[in-house]
Amino acid sequence: MGSSFPMEPSGSGRPEARRGGGLARPEGAPVPLHQAGEMPFGGRPREELWESIGPRVRARLHELAGDTIEWFACADPSSPEGRPYGVVAGEGGLAVAEPRISTDHRPVYAISAFLFASGSLRHVAIDHRPPPRGPSATAGNAAGNVAGNAAPAVDIGLSAQAKGVIGNLPPRAQELLQAPFTAQRRPTRHDWWYQGFEHRLNGFLLYLAGTRDVTFATGTKDVPVGHDAASAHWSLTCYRASVGRRMGG
C-alpha cells in the first residue's frame, strides 16, 4: 500500500461534516470491498453498561484517549458474569478496558491503548446518498475488486463478521478503513458498535488497530422511505492516525 492518505488534520473537538475531499487510491494490491452482512440488534444500552465499568476505569480510558470522539460499552462474551468492556476513541488514542480476574480472584479491568503520534490524526467526512433501490454499490464493487483488477485484493485478516459489518459501509469508507493495512501488517484488534433501528442507526463506531496505524469510522445511517439497506444513506467521518506508543496487551 502507498503511504499517501490526504485527509484533513483533526484539531480539538469533533470535525464538522463536509462533502467531497480528494483521496488518492493507495498503490499496490487493491483494498478489499466486502459484501454486506447482517447487523443484528439487541443487548443492554451502552450507558447502562458504561456505568457498571466503574468511575476510575472510565476516567483512565478518557485520559488515555484524550478528547472523546466516540465511545461504547458492550457485554464481554468471555466474561461468565456478563461484565462489560469499554472502548473510547479520541483525539489522542484508542483505549480499551476488558474485564479480568486478578491473581487473588477479584474482578478487575485490564486496560490497553494505542496512543497516537502527535499531530498524526487525520479525518475525512463521507456523505453517502445513493438513489433509491439502485444496485448495491458495495456488492457490485466487491465483485469488481476480484474480477476487475489484475492483482487480487489483499487479505488483512479480518473476521467474517467484521467483513460483513464493513460491507454495509460506503465503498469509500471501506477503503479508508483498510488502506494502511496489508497481509504482512494486519490489524491486531478490530471491533464495532452501533445502536438504533434497522431504518436508522443513531450511533456507529468501527475501528481497526495495528502496530503502526489505527483507523476508525463514526457516524449515522438512515434508510429513507423508498430505500432499502443497499441504498441506505450514511453520514460518516473516517479517521486515521499513526501509533506512537502501545500500552498493554
Rank of each mutant, 00 (worst) to 15 (best):
G2H: 10
P9F: 09
S12Y: 14
P15Y: 04
G22I: 12
A24Y: 08
P26Y: 11
E27Y: 03
P30Y: 02
V31M: 11
H34Y: 15
H34N: 08
Q35A: 15
E38I: 09
G43P: 00
G43N: 00
L49E: 01
L49T: 01
E51A: 11
S52H: 08
S52N: 10
I53N: 07
R56T: 15
V57N: 00
R58C: 06
A59S: 14
H62E: 15
E63M: 00
T68P: 09
T68S: 09
E70Q: 12
F72Y: 14
F72E: 03
P77E: 00
S79H: 10
E81C: 09
R83G: 05
G86A: 03
A89W: 01
E91Q: 15
E91N: 10
E91P: 03
G92A: 01
G93Q: 09
V96H: 02
E98W: 00
I101E: 13
S102E: 04
S102K: 06
T103C: 11
T103I: 14
H105K: 13
P107R: 13
I111L: 03
S112G: 11
G119Q: 06
A125V: 07
A125I: 00
I126G: 02
P130K: 05
P131D: 11
R133E: 08
P135G: 06
S136H: 10
T138Y: 06
A139D: 08
G140S: 12
G144M: 14
G144D: 14
A150R: 12
P152I: 01
V154H: 05
D155F: 05
Q161W: 10
G164W: 02
N168K: 12
L169D: 09
P171Q: 07
R172I: 13
Q174C: 03
L176A: 01
Q178C: 06
H190K: 03
H190N: 10
W192P: 03
W192L: 06
W193I: 06
Y194A: 01
Q195G: 09
Q195K: 15
E198S: 09
R200G: 04
R200I: 11
L201M: 03
G203E: 09
F204D: 07
F204S: 02
A209G: 01
G210R: 03
T211E: 15
T215H: 04
T218H: 07
V223R: 06
P224D: 02
G226Y: 13
H227A: 03
A229L: 12
S231G: 01
L236F: 11
C238M: 10
R240L: 00
R240S: 02
S242P: 06
V243P: 01
G244Y: 05
G248T: 00
G248H: 01
G249E: 15
